[in-house]
Amino acid sequence: MKLKSSILMLVAALSVAACTNPDRFGSDGVGAGGDPLAGADTGIVPGSASDPASPAYFQQAVGDRVLFAVDQSTLTPEGRSTLDGQAAWLLANADYTAVIEGHADEQGTREYNLALGARRADAARAYLQSQGVPGGRLQVVSYGKERPIEVCSEEACYSKNRRAVTVLAGGLTS
């Protein structure tokens, strides 16, 4: 129960973060991720994005999500590269588990999009597992089109909404 509630709180916290900081996967995120590795002796704030063992680092430097083409659940080369980073991080930080959330854009019916989100989340899960992350540490859930992060009705937004997001759980209490 304790774990479950901390997962839910973390999911909630990260969803809020997702809404307030939609650009963190652009060049800013990568830049912020590059710095702490190079300047480790300049003082790392534990738990901040400069701490490579922190969820914030996972989210911003590694990248917590992969994107998909319209009605597709095939991983792109960029997606696989992001998941390589996620797998390495999860292997290095073995006390974390993860829930992979699959999402779809609004251009589809509700039920189909739930199933499509499941396919996307599972594609990410299968890849992480193929890279050595134990399946027991990974769960998948689909939100279909219920939780867009971008709200315009254009491809610029849709392309960011077609995603699988790896949301960390555990770690905090251990």
């Binding site: 199933a115 396919r119 998948v140």
Partner: peptide, 8 residues
């Protein structure tokens, strides 16, 4: 419907 893995 049940989704198990990628399959529904």
């Amino acid at each position: 419907s049940l989704s198990q893995g990628s399959n529904t």
